[in-house]
Design a protein around this nucleic acid. Structure first.
Lengths: 181, 181
DNA sequence: GGCATCATGTAAATCGTTACATGATTGC
DNA sequence: GCAATCATGTAACGATTTACATGATGCC
C-alpha cells in the first residue's frame, strides 16, 4: 500500500463535497484559506490521476462538455478510504509533526462521520496537545535558561504558545459541539 | 544559484553556534524542540555535503580523532550567506506559507546580527501577520457562514487563532527586547 | 482579430523519506 | 566476547516545484 499524501486527501475530501474538475480544485486552493496547498497544475493533475489509478475517484462522466473539463467524482472505495483516514486514532507523532494534517481531517469530519466521532477526535487531540504542551513546558523549565540566544528562547516560547493556542481551540470547539447535542 | 533548504540553513546556524559533527547535529534534531527536522542520516549527511560543495562549511580539520568523527565548521562565505538569509525583508508570502522558516530565522538572529535588526524583523513580522489576520477575519465575515460543514468553519477559526497567537507573541517579544535597550 | 481566461498536461530537477549497510568503539 | 552505541554512508523511491507547452473559448 503506497502512502497517500495530504494533497490527495484534500482533493478527495473536496470531491466528496461536490464533484468538480482539476481546474475547479486549483481555484479552491488559490482563493480560499486552503491556499497553503499549491495550486500548480504540476501537483494537482498527477495527484488526481494517482487517485484514479487507485480506484478512488473517476473522471469518466459528463466529459462531453463544451469545454473539455474533466469532472472527477469519488467512488465507493475512495469514500471508504477517506473515512478510514478521518477516524484514525491520533498518536503523539501526529500532534508533533502533522498538526496541519489533523486540522485538515477535522475540517472534513462533518458530512462524512457521525457527530460522536468528531467529539472523540477532539478528545484525542486535546489529550495529545495537553501532554505535549506539558512536555515542552518541562523542557523549558529545565533547559530554557541554557539556550544561549535570547531570540532562541523567545522562538521556543512561540512554539509553546502556538501549541497552547491549538489546545485552547480544541477545548472551546468541543464545548461548542457538545452544547448542541 | 541553487535554492537552499530550510534544513541546510538550520545546520549552518547550528554550526555557527559551535562546530560539530553530523552525528551531533542529528542528536540536536532528535532531542531538542527542533525535532520537527528529521534526524535521519539520509537527509543530514547529504545536506552537509551540499553545504561543503557550496563552500559554506568545511569538514577538514580535527578529523584525526579516535572515532572518525567529521567535525564541520562554517566558512566566511557561509556566514555571509546565512546573515543575508537572516536579514531578508519579510514578504507577505513568507508569513502565509513559511512562518516556520521565519521562526527559525528569528531563533538564530542573536549572535549573528545586531539587536536593531532583530527589532526590524519583529516589526516586519508584526505588520505581515496583522495584515493577514485582518484579511482572514474579513474572509470569514463574508464567506464563513457559507462553509457548509461546521467542523470546516471551526478549522478555519483555528487557523485564524493560530495566526493571532503568533501576532501576540511577536508584539510581546518586541516589547521585551525593547525594554532592554 | 486579439487578448484574457479556461483547462490540461509534461519534463527536469531536487529534496526528503525509508531502508539497508557497514565498521569502530565502549562497557560489561 | 558481545551488545549497544557511535558514526557515516548509499540506493531507491516518491512527491512537489518550476517551467514550459498547448489548444479552446468568450469577450470586446
Amino acid at each position: 500500500m503506497a502512502n497517500v499524501s495530504r494533497l490527495e486527501y484534500a482533493l478527495l475530501g473536496l470531491l466528496l463535497q461536490n464533484p468538480q474538475s482539476g481546474y475547479d480544485l486549483r481555484k479552491v486552493f488559490a482563493m480560499t484559506p486552503m491556499r497553503h496547498f499549491s495550486d500548480s497544475p504540476g501537483s494537482i493533475y498527477p495527484a488526481l490521476r494517482r487517485l484514479e489509478a487507485r480506484g478512488w475517484i473517476t473522471g469518466k462522466g459528463e466529459q462531453a462538455n463544451a469545454r473539455k473539463r474533466n469532472v472527477y467524482r469519488p467512488l465507493a472505495a475512495g469514500k471508504r478510504a477517506f473515512v478510514e483516514w478521518l477516524v484514525g486514532t491520533i498518536m503523539r507523532d501526529d500532534v508533533l509533526y502533522r498538526l496541519d494534517e489533523l486540522m485538515l481531517r477535522f475540517a472534513f469530519l462533518d458530512g462524512n462521520v457521525e457527530r460522536e466521532k468528531t467529539l472523540t477526535f477532539l478528545d484525542e487531540l486535546e489529550a495529545g496537545l495537553d501532554s505535549y504542551v506539558k512536555e515542552l513546558r518541562l523542557f523549558y523549565k529545565k533547559f530554557g535558561a541554557g539556550i544561549g540566544q535570547e531570540t532562541g528562547q523567545l522562538a521556543f516560547e512561540s512554539g509553546i504558545q502556538s501549541y497552547e493556542a491549538s489546545l485552547n481551540w480544541a477545548r472551546s470547539a468541543r464545548k461548542r459541539l457538545e452544547r448542541q447535542s
